[in-house]
Simulated scan of single mutants.
Amino acid sequence: MKRISIVVPMYNEARHIGRTLDSALRAARLAELECELLVVDNGSSDDGPRLARERGARVLVHPGLAIGALRNRGAQAASGDCLAFLDADIEVPADWLCIWRQTRESDRADILALDCDTPAEAPWFARAWQRRSLSGRRRAALLREWLPTPNLCLERHWFEQVGGFDEVLRSGEDKDFGLRLGGAGARQLSLAQPLAWHWGYEGNWREWLGKELWRQGSHLQLLRSLGPSLRLLRFPLLCLGVLLLSLAAVLNLLGGHCALAAGLLLPGLLGALLLAARQAWKRRDGGLLLQLWPLHWIRLHLGGAALILSLLKRNARRPARG
């Protein structure tokens, strides 16, 4: 490992890009790696590009592209034998690239990502939603089927072997990329410690709802990209079922059938509880369970709505943040 190219897609992230690039440069110095910063801008109207250039980043301007295409443009322009994909609102720990270097030297894995947490000042729903993805205190390292891309490290040949990111997918491109890497034999390691910090958290309910609806809009595209799969179908079908049952419950409630309405709501509430319990169990945190339960219930309905919009070829608008 001689040179690492850090690719950062960006859209109106002046609030965070300085912190992100400073942390990446600090990590490269500590790991004694030659570092190349490539910020791929999606048409920002704020000071993000200027702030990136002030930190020595090469800024590539590609407005109107999907997130996967932005990452691909950065990788195509990169010269490093290793690639790191870093979101513009992520602060990585100082030993991020030291860990990556040690991972490759020990042949422990081929792909690396650190868990991300949200700062304490974030609203409770943003903190709880981020914490649901943490590995938990007892699982410091875990090989996974795929890894999210907020701070993903890999050798360049793996990127080229699978053909990079799918440029058609509006969301879910990280899952598609990771599943294809896994199919090619790449070992993908997730570390619970040290943590990266996600500063682009949802500041209000409107942001959270909009971002989650957007995220849930990729299920049909993933099926077209990866082929029919029960694993990919089960969650969107669950969402659709919960949404239809809730609509039926509302109609019965309006018709005065309260007991039937409650019975129709029960499967969705139980499904949300099971999803929340599975994630809270890793943290041994009953409080997190109570926070995640209503959030998962809302998410199931958003997923159903997103599936219907996809079938009608009406995609949810991409949120400004994320």
Rank of each mutant, 00 (worst) to 15 (best):
T103W: 10
G48C: 03
E212Y: 05
L21V: 06
L244S: 12
K2T: 12
V250S: 08
L86T: 00
A259M: 07
G210Q: 13
V242C: 14
I4L: 13
R321F: 07
R317Y: 04
G182F: 10
S44F: 01
L33R: 11
L288R: 04
E32L: 07
F177R: 12
H296L: 02
L147I: 00
Q188R: 09
N12I: 09
H157G: 13
G303H: 02
W100N: 04
N72M: 08
L223S: 01
L273Y: 03
G136S: 04
Q76H: 11
A52E: 02
L264K: 11
G136V: 05
S133L: 06
R104D: 09
G227C: 00
L311V: 12
P93I: 05
W96V: 00
W158F: 12
R3D: 07
W146M: 03
R224E: 14
R53C: 04
R180V: 03
G303D: 08
A262I: 10
W208V: 02
V162C: 08
G286N: 00
P119H: 10
K2H: 07
I298W: 05
A52G: 04
L240Y: 05
C116N: 11
L275V: 05
G64Q: 05
L169F: 01
N42D: 15
G287Q: 12
G74Y: 06
H301N: 15
L220V: 08
L275G: 01
D110P: 14
L51F: 12
G203A: 14
T20C: 15
R215A: 02
G256A: 13
S246W: 15
L253C: 04
G256S: 11
N315Y: 15
W96F: 15
H198P: 00
Q279E: 15
L169C: 01
V61M: 10
W100F: 14
D176G: 06
W199P: 07
A75S: 14
I6W: 04
L295P: 03
L300G: 06
L83H: 03
V7N: 04
A276M: 07
D107K: 15
L260S: 13
L21A: 03
A196C: 14
